[in-house]
Nucleic acid binder design. Structure first.
Length: 772
DNA sequence: AGGTTAAAGTCTCGGGATGA
DNA sequence: TCATCCCGAGACTTTAACCT
C-alpha cells in the first residue's frame, strides 16, 4: 500500500466535508479506505480498479440507494484527484448493446420477424381449415414450428427432415437428430420438443419403430442408402437435404400466400422465402427465454453427441453385465510388469520451461515463416515457382531463417517442422501462394500458440486429434475446406515422421473423412469411476494407489494422461481443507490451470488423496533427498524414486483395466470427456435448483446440495455484478480449452438435458429461464 | 445548452483466409 | 494447388451518453 488511508481520508474530508454527512457517510469512509488499498505505487488508480470500486460500493449501499454507487465513486475519486495524492481514472460507464446476431439489424428484418411471429399461431388455423392436407403440408407444419418454437435454422431443419425416421421419435416425444448430415453412426443429439411441435408429428409416431423409411415418407421419399461408400454418402446426403429444402420452399410459398390472404398482411414487407423465414423466425424463441447459446446451436450441423443417461442408469450394479463389484473382484487387477519400476523418466522433465519462452512467440514464429515465403517469392521465376537455379539460394535462406527461429526458441516445435516442410514443397515446384495458404492454414498464430505445438516429443494420437479438433473448431470452414485441411495436416505430420519426429503418433489423419465424428457417445458415471478407483486402490498394492489417484484426477479433475504423468509434488497444493492441482503444461500462465479438487471431488476421495500425497512426500523426507527441489520429484512414480512413471507403466495398465471391465473402446481420455460432461450438468444444477432431482444420477455425490454449494463458491467466489453470466468462462478455465465450441461439440455429451430443461421452463411449467 | 469522453461508424489498403 | 475476395487494422469522423 503506497498511500496512507488516514491521510487520504482527512484530505478528502477537508475538500469536501458534505460527503461525510448524511446517509452515505459510512459507505464513503469505507470507499476511501478501499481506494487507498487499490492505488498503486505510482499513485495511480486504473479504470479497472475504479470499476471494481463501483461494484463494491453497490454492494455496500442499501437496496434503495444502489443506483447512487456510480455517482458516489466518481465524486470521491474526483476529490481524491483534487488532493493531488493520487491520479484516479473514472469508472467506465457501461451500457448494454443488443447482440447484433440475435436481433433484427434493419427495419426490414424487424418486419419480417413480426410476420414470422404472426405466422406461428396462424399455422394452427391453416391446418384446421384445410379440407385435404397434402403430405408435404404436414412436413412444412413441423418444420415451421421447429423454427419458431425451438430455434432450428434452415440447414438443421432440412437436414434433419432428410434423415429422420419414425424410430427417431423417442417415447416421450423428443427427436433424435443425427449429429451431422452424413453421419450414420449411433451418435445422436436429443432435441426436445415443446407441445406445439410434438402435436405435429405424424400420428402414432412414438410407437412406430421403423428405421428404413423417412418420418414424412409420403412427402419426402426414400431415405439415404446407408450402404454407400463414405464419399458418395456425403454427396447423397447433401442432395437429399437440398431436395427437402426445395420441397419446403415450395410448400412455404403456398402457406405464405394463404397467410397473406387470410390475415390481411398485404403490401409492404413480404415473407415468402423459406430460408428467410428461418433466419428471422429462429430468434423468436429467445423471447420466451431460450438462451442465445442454444439458438446458436440450432443454426446447423454438427451437433454434439449425447449420452443416454437413462441407459447408463439402467446399468444397475446388481444386474449389469457391464460392470459390477463381482466382475471387478473376479478379475483382480494385474500389477504392472516387474520392470515397471524401471519405466521411468525424469520428473516433469518433458515440459519446457514456461518462463523462458519469448513474448508473443507464436506471432514472431509466424512472421518468420511469412518472411521465408517472401524470400521464396523473390526467387521465383516466370512460372511462379522457385527455379532450379535458385534452389541453393532458397536453402541458404531457409538456414538463415531457421537460425532466426532457433534464436527465438531452439526447437523442435511445430514451427520448425513447418519450416522444413514448406522448403521441401518450394523445392518441389509449389507456387508461392500455396506456401502462403499453408502458413495461414496449418501454421497460423493461433495454431502455433496451442500448448502441444511446443512439445513434439510428447505427441501421441490423442494430442494430434485434440489439436486437429481445436484448430477446426476455432475456424469457420465449410466441410470441403475442413477436408483439405485434414489432408494437408496429415501431409505435414507425415513429413515430420519422415524426418524422424513424432515417434508415438500412429494414426495420421488422412483425407476425406470430413464429417464431424463423435467417437464417444458414452461416458462413465460417477458410480463406475468410483468403482474403478476403489478397485485400483484395494487390489493393486502400492502401484494401485497411484493408479487410483490417476483415475481420480482424470474423472474429477479432467486431466489428460500427459497432464497426470507430468505432475510433480510442487503442483499439488494442500492447505487445510483446500486441495488444488496445478496443471502447467502450457507455455503461458494463461494455459496453466488450477483445479480445485476439494470442490470437484467427493470429500472422502479428497481426504484419501491428501493422505496419498502426504505419503508420497514422506518418501522423500529422507536426508539423501535433501538437495532435491520439489518440482524434481514426480507425484506418480515408483516408491522412493523421484522419477516419474512413463505412459507404459502407469496409463496403459489403467486403460487395460478399464477395457477389461467396461469393455469396448474406452481409454484414459474417456475420463476427461466424462468430467466435462458432468461438469456442465453440475453447473446447470447449481444455477437451477430442482434440476438435479430430474437426473437419473441424482443420487451421485456431485449433485448433493453440499457439493453444489461448494461449486458455487468457486464460481461466485469473487464479487461480480451478475452471477451466472460468466459460467462458461469458468468451465473453459477448468477444462483448459481455448474455445468453448471444442468443449461443447466434442466433450460435452450431456447438453441435451440442459436443453430440455430450458425448453420445459420456456414453454410449460414454472418460471422463465433465469439465472439464480 | 454545452463540454467531455468513449464508443461506434467510415474509409482505405494490403495481406491472409478461403473454397474450388 | 492457386486465384480471389474478404476482413481487420489504422486513421479519422460522428454520435451517444453523461455531467454540470
Amino acid at each position: 500500500m503506497s498511500i496512507d488511508p488516514e491521510k487520504l481520508h482527512d484530505q478528502v474530508k477537508r475538500l469536501c466535508p458534505r460527503r461525510f454527512k448524511g446517509r452515505d457517510a459510512e459507505v464513503v469512509t469505507g470507499l476511501i479506505t478501499h481506494t487507498a488499498a487499490l492505488i498503486d505505487e505510482n499513485h495511480r488508480l486504473a479504470r479497472a480498479q475504479a470499476n471494481q470500486l463501483v461494484k463494491a460500493t453497490r454492494q455496500a449501499l442499501p437496496d434503495d440507494r444502489k443506483r447512487r454507487a456510480f455517482k458516489l465513486v466518481t465524486e470521491v475519486l474526483e476529490v481524491i484527484n483534487l488532493t493531488g495524492l493520487a491520479t484516479c481514472a473514472m469508472p467506465g460507464q457501461t451500457h448494454h448493446p443488443m447482440r447484433p446476431q440475435t436481433t433484427a439489424g434493419s427495419a426490414l428484418q424487424f418486419h419480417q420477424q413480426a410476420i414470422a411471429y404472426a405466422m406461428d399461431p396462424y399455422l394452427d388455423r391453416w391446418l384446421a381449415e384445410r379440407a385435404a392436407l397434402e403430405p408435404m403440408d404436414r412436413a412444412l407444419a413441423l418444420a415451421l414450428r421447429l423454427t419458431t418454437r425451438t430455434g432450428m435454422g434452415a440447414d438443421l431443419v432440412s437436414g434433419s427432415l432428410a434423415r429422420l425416421t419414425p424410430a427417431c421419435v423417442t417415447a416421450n416425444g423428443d427427436l433424435r437428430l443425427p449429429i451431422d448430415i452424413a453421419n450414420l453412426s449411433r451418435a445422436y443429439y436429443h432435441w426436445p420438443l415443446p407441445p406445439g411441435c410434438a402435436r405435429l408429428l405424424p400420428p402414432g409416431s412414438p410407437k412406430d419403430t421403423r428405421d428404413d423409411v423417412l418420418l414424412f415418407a409420403e412427402a419426402l421419399g426414400e431415405p439415404i442408402d446407408p450402404t454407400l461408400p463414405e464419399d458418395a454418402l456425403i454427396d447423397a446426403a447433401a442432395e437429399k437435404k437440398k431436395a427437402v429444402a426445395d420441397a419446403l420452399q415450395k410448400a412455404f410459398q403456398g402457406f405464405a400466400q394463404a397467410f397473406r390472404r387470410d390475415t390481411g398482411h398485404r403490401g409492404g414487407v413480404r415473407l415468402s422465402d423459406w430460408t428467410t423465414f428461418c433466419q428471422v423466425g429462429r430468434f423468436i424463441p429467445q423471447g420466451r427465454g431460450m438462451p442465445p447459446a442454444l439458438i446458436e446451436l440450432g443454426k446447423g450441423f454438427p451437433l454434439p453427441a449425447c449420452t443416454d443417461l437413462h441407459a447408463l442408469a439402467a446399468q444397475n450394479p446388481k444386474q449389469s453385465v457391464r460392470l459390477s463389484g463381482d466382475t471387478l473382484a473376479s478379475a483382480p487387477i494385474k500389477p504392472p510388469a516387474p520392470d515397471a519400476a524401471n519405466l521411468t523418466a525424469p520428473a516433469g522433465g518433458e515440459w519446457f520451461d514456461t518462463e523462458a519462452l519469448p513474448e508473443h512467440w507464436a506471432t514472431k514464429a509466424n512472421r518468420i515463416l511469412q518472411r521465408f515465403c517472401q524470400d521464396a517469392e523473390a526467387l521465383q521465376g516466370r512460372n511462379r515457382y522457385v527455379t532450379e537455379a535458385n534452389h541453393q539460394k532458397l536453402e541458404d535462406q531457409r538456414d538463415k531463417r531457421l537460425g532466426e527461429l532457433n534464436a527465438l526458441w531452439a526447437g523442435p516445435t511445430l514451427a520448425h517442422i513447418g519450416f522444413g516442410w514448406l522448403c521441401e514443397l518450394a523445392l518441389k515446384r509449389a507456387k508461392i501462394s500455396t506456401l502462403r495458404t499453408y502458413v495461414s492454414r496449418l501454421l497460423a498464430v493461433s495454431t502455433l500458440a496451442l500448448e502441444p505445438a511446443m512439445n513434439l516429443p510428447l505427441w501421441d494420437d490423442d494430442i494430434v486429434d485434440a489439436m486437429e479438433t481445436q484448430i477446426i473448431a476455432s475456424r469457420d470452414w465449410q466441410h470441403t475446406t475442413v477436408g483439405h485441411f485434414r489432408q494437408t495436416w496429415g501431409d505435414c505430420l507425415r513429413y515430420a515422421k519422415r524426418i524422424g519426429h513424432l515417434p508415438e503418433v500412429e494414426h495420421l489423419p488422412g483425407g476425406q473423412a470430413h464429417v464431424h465424428t463423435a467417437k464417444r457417445i458414452d461416458i462413465l458415471t460417477p458410480y463406475e469411476a468410483g468403482l474403478i478407483w476403489n478397485h485400483c486402490l484395494h487390489h493393486g498394492g502400492d502401484w494401485g494407489a497411484q493408479a487410483a489417484a490417476a483415475v481420480m484426477l482424470g474423472f474429477y479433475g479432467g486431466l489428460r494422461s500427459a497432464d497426470v504423468l507430468g505432475l510433480t509434488l510442487k503442483d499439488v497444493f494442500i492447505d487445510h481443507g483446500e486441495v488444488r492441482v496445478t496443471v502447467s503444461a502450457g507455455k503461458t500462465s494463461a494455459a496453466t490451470r488450477s483445479i480445485p479438487l476439494d470442490v470437484l471431488a467427493p470429500p472422502e476421495m479428497v481426504r484419501w488423496f491428501r493422505e496419498f500425497v502426504e505419503a508420497r512426500r514422506q518418501q522423500f523426507a529422507d536426508p539423501r533427498f535433501k538437495g532435491w527441489k520439489i518440482n524434481q520429484i514426480a507425484l506418480f512414480g515408483p516408491s522412493g524414486n523421484p522419477d516419474r512413471y512413463t505412459r507404459e507403466a502407469l496409463i496403459d495398465p489403467i486403460i487395460g483395466l478399464m477395457r477389461a471391465h467396461l469393455g469396448g473402446e474406452v481409454d484414459f481420455h474417456l475420463l476427461r470427456h466424462s468430467f466435462v460432461s458432468w461438469l456442465a450438468l453440475r453447473v446447470y444444477a447449481m444455477r437451477h435448483p430442482g434440476f438435479a432431482e430430474t437426473l437419473p444420477q441424482k443420487a451421485a455425490t456431485m449433485f448433493q446440495p453440499a457439493a453444489l454449494a461448494r461449486l458455487r463458491q468457486i464460481f461466485d467466489g469473487e464479487a461480480r455484478s451478475s452471477a451466472g453470466t460468466d459460467d462458461h468462462i469458468q468451465i473453459k478455465k477448468l477444462v483448459g480449452h481455448e474455445d468453448l465450441r471444442t468443449s461443447i461439440l466434442h466433450y460435452t455429451h450431456t447438453l441435451d438435458w440442459i436443453h430440455a430443461d430450458v425448453m420445459r421452463r420456456a414453454y410449460n411449467e414454472g418460471p422463465r429461464v433465469k439465472v439464480a
